Computed example of a mutant assay.
Amino acid sequence: MERSVRSRKEAASHMRHVTIKDIARIAGVSTSTVSRALSGSKELSEATRERIVKICNEQGYRVNALARSLIRSRTNVIGLIVPEVTNPFYAEVSLGIETHARQLGYNVMLCNSQQDTKTTEELFGFLTSHQVDGIILANSHSDAPRWIQQFAPHLPTVLLGTPASLSGDEVNSVCVDNLAGGRLAAEYLLSLGHRSIAYLGHRSGSLTHQLRLRGFMEVLGKEGLTPTVIENTADSSSIGAGYELSRKLFNEGCPHTAIFAATDSLALGAMQAADEFGISIPDDLSLLGFDNIIYSSLPKITLSTIDQRKSLLAEAAVDILTQIIESDERDEFTHRMIRPALIRRSSCASIVD
C-alpha cells in the first residue's frame, strides 16, 4: 500500500505544470534568457540555446503560444508589404522572410501595395488594425522612409530596400549596398574590355536606382567614359519595360558593346528584344543584370548579374524586427547593408581586339 501511495505521489510530481521559472532555475539562467533561447534570438550562443532546449524537452516544458500572446499583448504575426509579389525579386524575398519568421515563431501576413502610395497607407492601417507585432515594408521608393514615419509612427518597423541611413531618417533599414553594386558592374564590364556601355532602365524616383547609377558612373568616369543612360518612366522595372526600352534602342541602332540593366527583369526584356532583332548575346552584345532572380540561372538565359543576396536581406529584416518587438527597445535605429556579389554566367563576353 505504501508503495502504491509513493508511486501516485511521484506521478503527480511529474504531472505538475512546468513553468519557465522552473526551466530558468534548472539551467541556472534568467527567465528572459530562456525566452530568448526559445524564440531563436541571435543574442545567445548556439551551445546555450541547445542546452536550454534540451532541458525544456527533458522537463516536458511546452510554450503556450496563446498565453504568451495574451501576457505580452502580442500576436506573433508580422506584416509584410511589397510593391508586387509577381515581381520575381519580391517573390523570393517574401518567401525568405516567411521562412525565417516561422523559424522564430512568427507568421507573416503578406500584402501588395501595387506601387501606390494610397494603397500603402491603407495597408498600414489594415495591418495595424489586425494587431500585427510589426511591419516590414519592402520598397525602393525614395519616399519610403517617410511613409513608415507617417503611417506607423508607434509600431516596430523595418524598411527593406532603401538605405534610410543615407538620408538620416529615423527608420530601421536593410538593403544591399547598391552603390557598391553599381561599381562592381562597371569594373566587371571594363575588365572585359567594354568602353561603350548603356545603363538600361534608370528610374529617377527610386533611391536604389540612383545609387546603382551613381556607383556605375563613378567607376566609368575615372576611365574618362560616360555611359548612355536610358530612363525608365514606367512604375516598375518589369520585363515588359525592359523589352520596350530595348526595342527603342535597337530600332535607333545600338552602338554599344554592353548593356548594364538596372534589374534582372529589365535584362530579360532586353534579351527578348535582342532575339527579335537578331542580336546575339553575348557575341554581338554583352548583357549584365542586377538582382540574381531565380530565372537568371535557367539554361537558356544564364544571365550574368549582381547578386543582392536575398536570403541575407530577408533574414536581416526579420531579425531586426523581431529583436525590436521582443526587447521593446525603440530609442536606437539599426541600418544594415549587405554587400553584393558578382555572378559570372554566359551573357557577358570579352571584347576581342
Rank of each mutant, 00 (worst) to 15 (best):
L95Q: 15
S129W: 00
E92R: 14
K118P: 01
V132K: 01
I97C: 05
E98S: 15
S140G: 09
D143R: 11
T117P: 13
T120D: 11
G125N: 04
Y90D: 04
T86H: 12
V82S: 02
Y106T: 00
E92K: 14
Q115V: 09
S113C: 10
E92L: 15
E122P: 04
D143P: 08
T119M: 10
N112W: 02
S142N: 09
A91W: 04
N139K: 02
S113D: 02
L104Q: 14
Q131M: 12
N87R: 07
V82N: 03
H100F: 13
N107G: 14
E121D: 08
F124E: 02
D133W: 11
A101N: 12
E122G: 07
T117C: 09
D116P: 03
P83W: 00
I97W: 07
V93R: 05
F89C: 05
H100S: 15
C111E: 09
I135Q: 03
V85L: 15
V108H: 02
S129G: 01
C111K: 04
I136W: 01
G134Y: 03
F89N: 02
C111H: 09
T86N: 13
Q103H: 12
F126G: 01
T128W: 05
Y90E: 02
M109P: 07
Q115C: 11
T99H: 11
E92A: 15
Y90N: 02
G105S: 12
K118Y: 10
E84A: 15
E84F: 14
Q131V: 09
T86K: 15
Q131S: 12
A101Q: 06
G125F: 00
D116S: 08
N107I: 09
F89H: 11
R102A: 11
G125S: 06
V85K: 02
Q131N: 12
L123T: 07
S129L: 04
I135F: 10
H141L: 10
F124T: 08
V85W: 06
S140P: 10
E84D: 15
M109F: 10
I135P: 07
L137V: 13
L127H: 02
N87T: 04
T86C: 13
D116R: 01
V85N: 02
V82M: 04
N112P: 05
V93W: 02
T117M: 09
V82G: 01
S140E: 07
T99G: 02
Q115G: 08
T117L: 14
N87H: 11
F124D: 02
Q131H: 14
E121W: 06
L95T: 12
G134M: 03
L137N: 05
N87D: 11
G105P: 04
E98I: 09
A91G: 08
Q114F: 14
Q114G: 11
N139T: 04
C111N: 07
S94D: 00
G96E: 03
Q114T: 12
G134C: 06
E98P: 13
A138D: 03
H100E: 14
Q103P: 08
L104S: 14
H100Q: 11
S142P: 03
L104P: 06
T117H: 10
G105H: 06
S142K: 11
G134V: 01
V82E: 01
